[in-house]
Amino acid sequence: MKKEKLIQYIYGIADNALMLGQRLSELCGHGPNLETDIACTNIALDLLGQTRSYYQYAAQLTGENVTEDDIAFLRTERQYKNVLLVEQPNNHFGYVITRQFLYDVFHLLLLQELQNSADLTLSAIAKKAIKEVSYHQRFSSDWIKRLGNGTEVSRQKVQEAVNDLWKFTDELFQLTEDDKSVIELGAGVDVSLLKEKYYQIVNDVLEEATLSVPELKWFRKGGKDGIHSEHMGYLLSDLQYMQRTYPNMKW
């Protein structure tokens, strides 16, 4: 059914925003200084705001009194369609920035296409989000350059994160069956076409940051099919704690 495909397609975008927003919000109050703490929280707020717009739309499509919170909190792990990259833990600030940067570049390219979607709601959400995500990309790219060109320690730490997280980048461009159906309807974005531009932008920033681009033959994937990393269960047990412990209540 077309509607079900569209709903799954929306999850594929929105779940990324939710998980990345959740990871960033874990940092609130623990940042390296107040200014950075505030900036990371801003990004988290943008992402969670976008999540709500997508889920409200998905809830409306689903009908049957489903709410944004049912979608956010009451699915099983296998039903979340986010990529593996965004669920990776905060390890240290180098990971936080690298994860953000590797996602932001993709996210902006995706939204620039999604704003042309034949689905007017998705197009409207994308147009609004582009402004936010352009800022995210500028923030994370600047930090990549700052850490890469900063001190020897910072260069090593950010390079470590780049080396570790690189294996999750290829999944961003993988097309699922639901994606294909929604693309056929003119509502979805063919992410496989974004790959070349993505690596070009990412590599340019890494070069400016004097960081080396990892050469990998094997990439990790699975998130888009709901097969996540071991980190995901813990992330969800935090995220879903209240809704699971006290079902069917209003907050």
Partner: peptide, 10 residues
């Protein structure tokens, strides 16, 4: 956060 602040200064 020390290494991050140091990097930003450098």
């Amino acid at each position: 956060g020390e290494w991050v602040r140091d990097a930003a200064m450098a």
